[in-house]
Amino acid sequence: MLSSPSPNPLAWLTVFVALTIGATFANSRHLLDVPRSVAAQALAPLQTGASRLGHAIAGAASGWQELSRLRRENEALRRTVEELLQETVRLRSAELENRELREQLRYAEGHRADAPLPAEVIGFDSSTLLGYAIVNRGSDAHLEDGMTVLTPAGLVGRIVSHTPRTSTVLLINHPSSAVNAVIQGSPGATGLVVGRPDGRLLMRYIPQAETVRVNDLVVTSGLGGAFPRSVPIGRVVHFETRDIDMFQEVIVEPFVDFRKLGHVLVMTGFTPTKL
């Protein structure tokens, strides 16, 4: 086999880079909105199918895993009945925690009156470097950019772009996301929750004077008007206070398991403020 000699590789690279820059420019001028929208609509059923297939496989796999886990757990529990007395202490604190969570959920229930719209997550960003999820509802369902997306467990993110049948949601666990938040029960302990590459959240700019404890609940503060007030975000798992710093930083474990995001609610009744 003989292959014909290739032209100058740099010339080819230049041609394709020029094409890409042209496409980027056209996209920034909204010249590609229509073809992208058409493509997104055409892809949505494929994404839905692939996503549902994945969920089905994951369901079957987790069912088997769950069965094995329950067997092991049952065995372990039989051997550790004596330890249950000690567990009672922990259960009491869990009960208190549960009560707090119920209050949060009641708040979320209250927002259901604001026409929360269920949507299915049909895909995630093709790049692992970006934190976007794609849901199967768009402007046809009256979704708009900026709308808050959550699950009963807590805040998921907000819509950053949409087509008639799909919306792109920026997840709060991505470094590009920023949410004004407050430690529940400490009105002065406000800060900014940003995503971390490891999937946890970082709450920054908490005033030094505020006392923060592990297991404190972090909720949205409503400041800035981008998100509604008091939506649960996560729980403090680590905090760092140094006298030389002006602010405290805490690591927050989100309530939402972003790897198992299947169904979400879009708060169509909340209108974000556009500053």
Binding site: L43, L46, Q47, T48, A50, S51, R52, L53, G54, H55, I57, A58, A61, S62, V121, I122, G123, F124, D125, S126, I134, R259, K260, G262
Partner: peptide
């Protein structure tokens, strides 16, 4: 692209 964007994330256990 479809597999890495829609199928694998929906499995949940793919870290």
């Amino acid at each position: 692209a479809l597999v890495q964007a829609s199928f694998l994330p929906s499995l949940g256990f793919v870290a």
